[in-house]
Design a protein around this nucleic acid. Sequence first.
DNA 1: GCTTTGACTGGAA
DNA 2: GTTCCAGCCAAAG
Length: 115
Amino acid sequence: MKRPPTPKPPLTLAIAAVIRRIPRGRVSTYGAVAEAAGYPRCARHVSKVLNQVPGLPWQRVLGSGGRISLPGEYGFEQRFLLEAEGVRFKGRRVDLARYEHCFLRKRRKPSSGKR
DNA sequence: GCTTTGACTGGAA
DNA sequence: GTTCCAGCCAAAG
């Protein structure tokens, strides 16, 4: 079964998986997501993934310092959606100290011993 | 295989 | 406080 090397590159899937793990009422940053996905310096790719992979809570992804990097009307919408989830804004930024989600490391089956 | 593209980031002005 | 620049990295054309 040869199949093309994954329709979506691992980087995209990894980032998408990380973003899906962000619970409601929490946020994260591009850099944090990229790092959690295994690509520490690929913050820019996170933005691409958000566009390529639908169904992701894109509003929960913010720029550094909790600021909204999304230009245009979408920036306001992002803020609106986050507030609807209970995230409070401090001016133009989110209080990351309170709402930044802490990604747990990939846990391999807790019951299967062997690491 | 080279070029362009990004919802970025951090530092300097 | 804000704005601009250069650096980084992988995917898509």
